[in-house]
Design a protein around this nucleic acid. Structure first.
Lengths: 152, 152
DNA sequence: AACAATTAGATTGTGCGCAATTTGATAGTA
DNA sequence: TACTATCAAATTGCGCACAATCTAATTGTT
């Protein structure tokens, strides 16, 4: 029971874990707002991000999209399948390498993106963060992620 | 293409979305480290957090635990069922109100927690955050979460 | 040309998270 | 007492995320 240990004694949730859990909680709070904003457009947040990415970076392979989003085919394949069924993206086998699948946004997909143009601003307002706070937070997050990724 | 618009033009992922996505990414990076540290103990991160909470705050109802973790019975019921099967928690109907289920850590659960005592420190080291950065980040996260929650 | 190794996606299985519904117990009220 | 409303937990259904496996196409080697 020595309270002088800075890594916090057993019995109280340590600060480190509070931070990690707080991050989980914050992400879910963001998700809830996105869900609210995207529901009427029939998109989930991961679908929205994927649509933005393929809409902006032209035709991408599944693995190429996965590098942008840090997701693998186990996640992306069914997600893209649903979005293709919804008419938002197109999946075409690359004639030059039949292993690859090229994913691109359909005209309907671009229209959907245009209709969602205000979402980023809505999110920014809801978060209540100042521009500087956003920059700081963003920097910290990128820094932590890199440390966690490379620190194996 | 007017670069003077602070809400960012269509065509580039806006900062706000980068932040939200960066947070998703960081959470998954944390999860990966936790997965690595917890795998040999047969726990997922949500299970770990749940075990810590019931181990610390004595017998809790499912909804009481849900208030701590901001999760509902749809998530907790199956999670607790698995942890009960693993012998880490005990679930007992409250005799005074048969609707309630009281969840508590078993001796084996407390032992497991003791064996995981070093995990918080490991996470802290891996994240590479200074104490002050952790405090700032934690404060920012709590602030954002509250704004997002109450800002409906 | 034939065969092994690699690569890209898809698939399977498990767990988390949330919305919606269901089941059972407790309160509250006519 | 009987009937309704409320509440706690569990269940169902869907989508995301990840590990592991599988299939098919390409590349490399002999």
């Amino acid at each position: 029971m020595s309270p002088s240990n800075p890594t916090s004694p057993a019995g109280a949730l340590s600060l480190e874990q509070q931070i990690c859990y707080a991050m989980h909680t914050t992400v879910r709070a963001f998700d809830a707002v996105y869900r609210e904003l995207l529901a009427e457009h029939g998109l989930s947040y991961p679908q929205y991000i994927a649509l933005m990415t393929v809409g902006e970076h032209g035709p991408l392979t599944v693995s190429g999209l996965g590098e942008h989003l840090r997701l693998d085919s186990g996640t992306l394949s069914p997600l893209l399948k649903r979005m293709e069924a919804a008419g938002l993206v197109e999946r075409v086998r690359d004639p030059e390498d039949e292993r690859r699948v090229l994913v691109s946004a359909t005209p309907a997909g671009h229209d959907r993106l245009a209709a969602l143009g205000d979402v980023p601003h809505q999110i920014a307002v809801r978060s209540g963060l100042s521009r500087q706070e956003m920059l700081d937070l963003h920097r910290t997050l990128r820094q932590v992620t890199e440390r966690l990724d490379t620190g194996a």
